[in-house]
């Protein structure tokens, strides 16, 4: 699994992160806390402005849904009451999607390709984490998200496989796919923040996916998030003796 992060990539924003996974690449920029427009202002908490921009073209209803899901999740992890009457602007610019990579980078509006926007949601959540930490926005806990797909029952032995971070082909042959996001405290996945499952699955499969999600998000936190954050702090305070 590729999982590369670069933080503070943008000079003019308060925090930013570039996340590259095996099939999605995106940049998240955070500006805030800043003064909001009067209509955005909330008296007791910070308001969030979330903008998702697609890899190609203008944003559509698809990006609106991504924004809505991100907002629902982020408002639970950002300590919003610390910044009353202020605005935190989060902009996610997607640079490459599984579909654009699949087509050799060339964009063609293929009617036959099924889009899996949840794969982008997964990357956007993980990207937001690094950008929020980079911007120094107060968070209740760490959070990490993972994508798991379940293959179709095998013709002979009815076996189903759980694939972590599936590719486009694997998604295409799956019977369902799931995004699981957990909050992480003391290296342990504690609270369920978001589940987004599409396809056809049973209750049993769902709970297996959730337990695998616990494992995966903890692994992600242990192997990548902690490492990148400690590297970042080390680099930020490089002049401090």
């Amino acid at each position: 699994m590729t999982f590369k992060v670069r933080t503070s990539v943008l000079d003019n924003s308060d925090g930013s992160a570039e996340l590259t996974t095996s099939d999605v690449k995106l940049i998240v920029s955070i500006t805030g806390p800043i003064e909001p427009k009067p209509r955005q202002e909330l008296p007791n908490v910070a308001s969030l402005e979330i903008v998702v921009r697609p890899a190609v073209g203008l944003s559509t209803t698809r990006e609106k849904v991504l924004e809505d899901k991100l907002r629902g999740m982020l408002q639970a992890v950002i300590v919003r009451h610390l910044y009353p009457r202020q605005l935190i602007q989060i902009i996610v610019q997607i640079q490459a999607t599984p579909l654009s990579k699949h087509q050799g980078g060339a964009y063609s509006n293929h009617r036959d390709e099924v889009e899996y926007s949840n794969v982008e949601l997964n990357a956007a959540i993980n990207g937001c984490y690094f950008a929020l930490v980079d911007a120094g926005i107060a968070l209740y806990s760490s959070f990490a998200s993972t994508c798991i797909s379940i293959t179709k029952p095998h013709e002979i032995n009815d076996n189903q496989e759980y694939i972590i971070q599936p590719t486009l082909d694997q998604l295409n042959n799956s019977s369902s796919h799931h995004i699981i996001c957990f909050s992480i405290e003391d290296k342990k996945a504690t609270k369920l923040l978001l589940i987004d499952s599409l396809g056809e699955f049973t209750e049993e499969e769902l709970f297996t996916v959730i337990s695998k999600g616990v494992e995966q998000t903890e692994l992600l936190h242990e192997n990548y998030q902690r490492k990148y954050i400690s590297d970042k702090i080390h680099n930020d305070y490089i002049w401090k003796s």
């Binding site: 629902g72 639970a76 209740y140 609270k191």
Partner: peptide, 11 residues
């Protein structure tokens, strides 16, 4: 189950 969407917007 055909779709499940869970968002914990309130911690």
């Amino acid at each position: 189950i055909k779709r499940l969407s869970l968002i914990n917007g309130d911690i």
